[in-house]
Design a binder for these strands. Sequence first.
DNA 1: AAGTGGTCTAGACCACAGT
DNA 2: CTGTGGTCTAGACCACTTA
Lengths: 228, 228
Amino acid sequence: MNTWQSVRAEVLARIRSGEWAPGGLIPTEHELARELGCARATVNRALRDLADSGIVERRRKVGTRVATTPSRRTTLEMSVIRHEIQAMGAHYRYEMTRFETLPAPSHVADALQVRQGDPVLSVKTQHFADNRTHCCEVVWLNPAVLPDIDRRDLEREPPHEWLGRNVALTQGQFTILAEGATGDCARSLDVRPGTPVLAIERISWSDLVPVSFARQFYGPGHRLVSED
Amino acid sequence: MNTWQSVRAEVLARIRSGEWAPGGLIPTEHELARELGCARATVNRALRDLADSGIVERRRKVGTRVATTPSRRTTLEMSVIRHEIQAMGAHYRYEMTRFETLPAPSHVADALQVRQGDPVLSVKTQHFADNRTHCCEVVWLNPAVLPDIDRRDLEREPPHEWLGRNVALTQGQFTILAEGATGDCARSLDVRPGTPVLAIERISWSDLVPVSFARQFYGPGHRLVSED
DNA sequence: AAGTGGTCTAGACCACAGT
DNA sequence: CTGTGGTCTAGACCACTTA
């Protein structure tokens, strides 16, 4: 069969067998197409897939190399918290506990690309699964990009769901780290201060303009699982 | 321009504008190709890309729907620890602190798909950046798949690097969580027990057979950053 | 049975990066 | 300039799913 999957498998097998060593060039698309008896587009599809997985590296004029860094890319599904909770079969409830304009602290100013002390919107929320706090978050919003957001908008609906429906988010970045719970967060999650919590920082852009910077905290036992 | 990127952008714009609502069907590939004046393959490439990002969902005979779950997929680069450390400009050193065959505890037996109590290889390692422990890990190896691994192999080289060069790893899964440092791990990372650490659990398969189950611990301040 | 996406083909042109 | 990958095309057939 000359499917692109079979081409991918063949190439992978040759890499695994050592026939094509890490750092070495493999044949060009034309050569592979001829050898395997399929169209170049098919080979291209297979090699592009391998490049997306980080198995090979491709550069024009140079060719395709077996990656020396056998690093793996893995994809995480960052779902809407409501769906995450409902998927567990739990009842979802959302609450906004703060909504106020504040001068931007330095780390927020960095993330939103505004000057330190510039006014930004600070929103605190909690997401409940069967009346236990599953996640609490602080969201900082760039008012320059959100002309007409209203307190009532976010009382009804979590910030990221509102943003998803009202702003053209073009890019996002996630940072994952472990922290000890502090103050409000510890109280919300009903854990002692210092308890390890998983923190996810999330920056959303709309056309290269930062729209929001969120810090989400998940209590003990929460796990992020890759798909693969 | 009839690039697949421009088709992708056009489709995205229509979704964002609300012209194509979440949950709704968008035109078929044929229709879009005709309307936008390009080949169907180009439309296919664009829509496939959007489907990979989770923006739309595609099913044969049904068509392409705007995803009701505006969940985002993001890719994490799980690099080899040595490269991670060298990329910071630090000196890398590796040490194996344990190598012994033990009866599999239940969580390890689950991960490696062996019976609880079956013999598995337990390896403890530390990875240093400029002589400070950057990461410590416990790796459990499935001896059924690793006939001729030797203690000396892993004294020279970290388990995952050895595996990468000697076993055809076909699949991996990562789980990320926050934990409090305990015992050996706390001592290795030079933190007090209970200090929040980022834990990454990693299972590697070779052709549906589990090869290794690793738990890696990173000290305070460590961050996983998505690419996007 | 019919309609949708999934893929392959053969050829072509282009963009880029070494020489 | 040259050779590589990146992409587009027009057409074709296939696979799957719903009706």
